[in-house]
Simulated assay, not measured.
Amino acid sequence: MPASPLKLFRLLGRTAAGRWTFSRIICAKAPYFASIAPLIEALAPGRCVVTLRDRRRVRNHIGTVHAIAMCNAAELAGGLATDVTIAPGQRWIPKGMSVRYLKKARGTLTATARVEAPPADAPAQEAHALVEVRDAANEVVFDADITMWVSPRRE
């Protein structure tokens, strides 16, 4: 990707077509995310919002949105939020994820990730991306705490 994700989102994210294009670019870079066809609605340091439409390919055997589809949306939102929050001299990788499935998930879901920036000059450390997934009634159906390992970039 030629530009940083944040710069690219600021360029494309002002319109629905631009957000769709940005989402497809991210899915091309990390192809597994394409399995849920996410739409990245908002991206700023400390925050990312991703929507996931309820359709057959993300459903489980009981007709609700599959737990792993929500994990996928949470990891995308948490990863992007972390990526645009850390300092340019840092890198990140998910280290673990704790999730809670709070109620049956139906309809369009919105995953909102929040992450605090670790100090730019800090040694390698953990950061936490906290993600809530809400349904159309604004009820939390799932939440996650994604542990990110943030370390200085190697030269």
Rank of each mutant, 00 (worst) to 15 (best):
L80T: 09
I62E: 00
E75R: 03
G46C: 06
S35G: 01
G107E: 11
W20T: 14
P119K: 10
A87M: 05
T112G: 04
D83N: 05
W20G: 03
A44Q: 14
K29E: 06
R19G: 07
T112F: 03
A117M: 10
I36F: 08
G46W: 04
R106Y: 07
A67M: 06
A67T: 10
V99W: 03
G107R: 10
I25S: 01
T64A: 14
G78P: 10
R91S: 13
F33Q: 03
G96K: 09
A30R: 02
P94S: 12
A44W: 01
C48D: 01
M97G: 03
R100N: 15
W20I: 05
P45R: 07
A113P: 11
P123Y: 01
S35D: 01
A87C: 09
S35P: 00
G89K: 05
K103P: 00
L76W: 03
A42K: 13
L80Q: 05
K104T: 08
G96F: 09
L52G: 06
L76H: 06
A34Y: 12
R47W: 00
I25F: 09
C48F: 09
R24Q: 15
A44P: 02
E41C: 12
S98K: 15
H66G: 01
H66N: 15
A28K: 12
A37N: 10
R57G: 00
S23L: 09
T51H: 03
L39C: 11
G78Y: 11
R56Q: 09
D83K: 10
I36Q: 02
H61Y: 11
L102G: 02
I36H: 03
R91V: 13
A37T: 11
P119L: 08
A105F: 06
R55K: 14
A17M: 12
Y32Q: 13
W20P: 00
G63L: 12
L80W: 08
A122C: 05
V99Q: 06
S98N: 15
L109N: 04
A124I: 04
G18Y: 08
A30S: 12
P123E: 12
S98C: 00
T112N: 02
T64S: 15
F22K: 04
A87D: 14
S23E: 08
Q90V: 00
A74Q: 08
A73S: 10
A77Y: 10
R100D: 14
C27W: 02
I62A: 08
T112P: 03
D121A: 15
A73N: 04
A73Y: 10
A73V: 10
A17V: 13
S35M: 14
H66F: 15
A87L: 06
T64W: 00
D121C: 00
F22R: 01
A67R: 07
P31F: 09
T21R: 14
G46K: 07
A17E: 13
C71R: 01
L52F: 10
C48L: 04
T85W: 11
L39H: 14
I26E: 01
L109E: 09
Y101C: 12
N60Y: 08
G107P: 06
T110W: 01
Q90C: 12
A69G: 07
Y101G: 01
R114E: 12
L39A: 07
P45Y: 09
E75F: 05
L102W: 03
V50P: 10
M70S: 02
A77T: 04
P45M: 11
A69V: 07
R106L: 12
I40D: 02
V65H: 08
K103T: 12
R24C: 04
R53Y: 00
L76S: 04
I86Y: 02
T21H: 00
A77S: 15
A28Q: 12
